[in-house]
Design a protein around this nucleic acid. Structure first.
Lengths: 329, 329
DNA sequence: CTGTTAGCGCCTTCAG
DNA sequence: CTGAAGGCGCTAACAG
């Protein structure tokens, strides 16, 4: 429980000098730096980050906002990957992380959330997969009080960066591959929840493919739900050659239905979740590396936080494009 | 960004009075309390928790330590439930949560971890499913520097509580039910990783059943792995009537194997994860409510943190027994 | 019941 | 290059 004061005494210097030495300021002689480090080691000193944050007004604290949906827990795998990616990078960059779920903020207003975050000393927020309907979050972004990195949401402004893979291209490619491999002549497409940004982009991808190849395309909203995908497959699969799903979970639902209908149709998914293996399914899919995406998001957050207060010509924000692999399981 | 000072000025009282009013101290007149609250509202004041923590030396910060294993991501569902349970309860009790993974600390010593936690202002730690081999965590517990709640680990001391379901009884019951329903005459038991505490307890449960009913029992270590369970099933299933697995994931592996072997054996699992549905499997299992268990853990943590520094006759620690349901899917 | 006064542990000008 | 001094925003005795 030794403080910077103890270290200063032990090293025979002033507290301010210790502070400078520890925070890597240039104007400290090599000799005193060594002395300070020795004292630190001897006293087993660990700086009190709370005090540091209070004094410097830099908390380095970032909130993670996860859209955990309680009905389809199976895709929690994705959120966990997001979490572990963000946290490991945060530790590396010495940032502090607080985790929240959409459910905890749905009932509150943007200003309430802002108050809450402010009181917690949160400087930045990483938002995972918000939808167009999440007006509270939109407002939070527009307030520009916090540095924000939005995953899978193409929104940027002076304090907001965005990060995602190229969903349009990815959807195009995986669908194309599946169609080609099976010489498909028509496509049934099960899309995600309507208010999702990625839903639109993926839709654009499948439309491009259909247009290019002149294939009949039926689009039905599956809401990212296995159950719904299953129902839609029962209803429409017989009329189409290939079933393209906007998520693996829906693909599972579709394959289930096909099994029961006892007909074969090639199916492809999206996301590349491990669950597929346990479900015993094999198909083409777009493998997203959620862990890595989240790492990149936290990395970007670090940048934004450093870029700090100073106004500059080059804008802070950017859209980061992550890679994906399209995989044949 | 108004501070307590502004509020004091606005309300025409001293800062200390504001502090008292806001923190619900009794010795504040109703009138001033109202004045203060008015000022708070007018200035849109939100207290700076960092400053408060620094001054009061009570951070209300608790670390969550999750044992995320990267190979079997499918069971991330459990960790996510743990997380959401702990976090929602923490918000309710106005505690602050920091999430960590075992992987981040395996490489460090107990004192390093303690330093790290201390510097982060962490007062309590909830540990999920540590094993007997996790000597670093044992040491962390024995240091008694932090309040600890251990989930699924029967360890208690002056600063440590423990919480879990009755694994022995649960394993006994679900196995018994499965055996009875199928008139089984012998049992193949696939156990969890040897160093897990719950592994031992569940083993005791199955042994009790076998002894009571006089059934031949073969125990094989499946390490909570689907793959391993599958292999073991291939090897030993033919000689036994019923397959009892210490986890749902292993049960999935076992059923897979049985399908391929094209023989029938009743199988039962443990945990009650949603994944089962997507895997298209139905079986008896013990349904643990991980969310609720974790809520209870955080609740207990709150107790420990309040129970605070004062020494008392009644010990802080306790073993909390959670309920489980044994379920027929 | 209310105000005054010290800090909490650290950072950060500003002199020297 | 180093030290002294003044906070950061809040809490906690201690007087009054």
């Amino acid at each position: 429980m030794s403080s910077i004061k103890d270290v200063a005494r032990r090293a025979g210097v002033a507290v301010s000098t210790v502070s400078k030495a520890l925070n890597g300021y240039p104007n400290v002689s090599e000799e005193t730096r060594v002395r300070v480090n020795a004292a630190v080691r001897e006293l087993n000193f660990t700086p009190n980050l709370l005090a540091s944050a209070l004094s410097s007004k830099k908390t380095g604290r970032v909130a993670l906002l996860l859209n955990l949906n309680t009905d389809t827990q199976a895709v929690d795998e994705i959120d966990m990957q997001y979490l572990s990616g963000a946290i490991s990078k945060a530790v590396e960059r010495r940032l502090d992380v607080a985790t929240f779920f959409f459910s905890m903020i749905r009932s509150r207003s943007a200003s309430e959330i802002a108050d809450y975050f402010r009181s917690q000393g949160i400087e930045g927020v990483i938002i995972y997969g918000m939808g167009k309907e999440d007006s509270v979050l939109r407002e939070l972004i527009e307030r520009k009080e916090f540095r924000i990195v939005a995953v899978d949401v193409p929104v940027v402004n002076e304090t907001t960066s965005s990060i995602q893979i190229d969903h349009e291209q990815a959807q195009y490619e995986v669908a194309r591959k599946t169609v080609m491999e099976n010489k498909g002549k028509s496509i049934l497409y099960l899309s995600g929840r309507p208010d999702g940004y990625v839903t639109q982009e993926r839709l654009a991808g499948i439309r491009r493919l259909a247009a290019e190849e002149g294939l009949p395309l039926l689009i039905k909203s599956g809401d990212f739900s296995e159950k719904k995908a299953r129902e839609l497959t029962f209803r429409y699969a017989s009329g189409y050659d290939v079933i393209v799903c906007a998520s693996d979970l829906m693909a599972i639902g579709a394959m289930r239905a096909l099994q029961e209908m006892d007909i074969f149709r090639p199916v492809c998914g999206f996301d590349g979740i491990t669950l597929m293996c346990y479900a015993g399914m094999q198909m083409n899919t777009v493998k997203q590396d959620f862990h890595q995406i989240s790492e990149a998001a936290m990395e970007e957050m670090g940048r934004l936080l450093e870029g700090g207060s100073g106004r500059r010509i080059v804008p802070d924000y950017q859209i980061v494009r992550m890679k994906y692999q399209d995989v044949l399981n």
